[in-house]
Write a protein that binds this DNA or RNA. Structure first.
Length: 186
DNA sequence: CCCTGATTCGC
DNA sequence: GCGAATCAGG
């Protein structure tokens, strides 16, 4: 695959929106993240504020000059996704498993993260979804769908899934229920 | 281990 | 110009 004008244009657009090199690579197809990074450098379009993994991702959107509403939403979305990734890795690094989940008893519904149809026992822990888009899924991200597939807000859980499984540990339990355990699920 | 971008250098 | 390998890092 070569760098046609169209592909370069898409690259520049996505890079400007704050997507990571690997995400852009998967969306372009036929190239690796290394290729994307290399191209970005050759094009000298470094404008993006440092990414370097975690730290501050709030600044860029606010510092940028006025943009059209729709574009702002896209940027904000990308940043939120990155933030979730950062928070997740931060929690993982601390070895505190509880930090990535919350008890169902607290009705502090963060809307997007709750699967209404999922039956849960009191006190059972529900993982917070990463809300990844289709192109962000990899071999080891949970592919449990969240929301309306026809909506632009459609996302996937995206939490880590064990090698062969298409779902994270939590959603695998829901997806592959033994007949004995399956009770009334509307 | 998962991920990020940066750089080098043979092609 | 291209991008795999490598480096440095969260």
């Amino acid at each position: 695959m070569s760098w046609t004008d169209e592909r370069v244009e898409l690259l520049a657009k996505l890079w400007g929106e704050g997507l990571s090199a690997s995400q852009i690579a998967s969306q372009l197809g036929g190239v690796t993240r290394n290729a994307v990074i290399g191209k970005v450098h050759r094009l000298k379009l470094e404008t993006r504020v440092k990414v370097a993994g975690a730290a501050e991702l709030v600044r860029p959107a606010l510092a940028a000059e006025p943009v059209m509403v729709e574009e702002s939403v896209e940027v904000a979305t990308a940043q939120v996704l990155q933030m979730q990734t950062s928070l997740r890795s931060a929690a993982r690094g601390g070895g505190v498993q509880g930090a990535t989940a919350f008890k169902m008893e607290e009705p502090d519904d963060l809307d997007l993260d709750i699967e209404p149809e999922a039956p849960r026992a009191p006190g059972e822990v529900v993982p917070i979804a990463r809300n990844l888009t289709l192109v962000q899924l990899t071999e080891r991200t949970c592919k449990w769908p969240l929301g309306d597939p026809l909506s632009p807000d459609f996302r996937f859980c995206g939490n880590h899934s064990d090698d062969s499984s298409p779902y994270c540990q939590y959603h695998a339990r829901i997806a592959f229920q033994p007949a004995s355990e399956r009770r009334r699920i509307r």
